[in-house]
Amino acid sequence: MSETLLVDKIARRPAWWAGLGSYIRHRPFFILALLVTLAFLAIALLGTAVTPFDPTFQDMEAPMSPPSSTHWLGTDSYGQDLLSRAMAGARYAFLTGICSVLLGALGGLAVGLMAGLAGGRTEWFLMRIVDAILALPSLVMAIAFIAILGQGVDKVILAVGLALIGPFARTVRADVLQVRALPFVEAAGLMGIGKLAIVRRHILPNVFFPLVVQATIRISEAILVSSSLSFIGIGIVPPTPDWGLMIAEGRGFVSFAPWMSGVPGAALAILLIALAIVGDGIREQMDPKQRAGH
């Protein structure tokens, strides 16, 4: 029953930008969140060019100073400027978030394609492994990988990326199964077009777009997991200005220097909320069933 419905849905899908103009007018929060995200991204790209201090410069005169005219958002226990560190942290958040999602999406694409196309025993076997991996929360999975790999920015990216392969593989496989059942793919097969060509010309383009949407939505999850790893002290190592790490450093000083975890925490929270709103907007735009409601 679901198959005919799906064919129906895909065939009637309007171009994704349809109604974008009215969408912007009706969704001010989405636009605001998008702007916030872009601002964070700009800070991440510009890096130390726009920070008032070097993020690892230790001002021995002013350790743990509250927000002042020199240090707008205060300093930490080493006298490092928190505003500069929070701004520099944006780079690590996006770096770990985007790289690990890319890794997870590519891995998931490979596993999902293999499972969806091979069918039979290979598919069954691959999907059972994915099931087993999905039984573990991504943070626990990432912790296990960190245990094997060790600490550091590159290790965090690798661990989070590997932990994300499972969820991506599952959606890719589902998409492959749907697309494979479509008449034009079947027709291409009957016309004697090679298997690889069918995958490249017909299946990949149809699987790729939903995967990109998935990936954008999952960036916030990747940022959250990687900063969580740093927060519990097994991810990125000091003195790298990573938000999770900075929040953890400030935890012990919360009674007399609450700005120490307050500043990086606010940066992380604002970015994650903005990303969630953007993600919701993208998801709604992509799902014709939900969009019809507006």
């Binding site: 969580s228 929040i247 919360v254 992380l268 994650l272 969630a276 709103i277």
Partner: peptide
């Protein structure tokens, strides 16, 4: 929406600061 996106460990520290300290 804020609740689902807010990092829990940061919320914990905020709660410690407000209600604990």
């Amino acid at each position: 929406l804020t609740g689902t996106a807010f990092p829990s460990f940061y919320l914990g520290i905020l709660l410690i600061w407000i209600f604990g300290v």
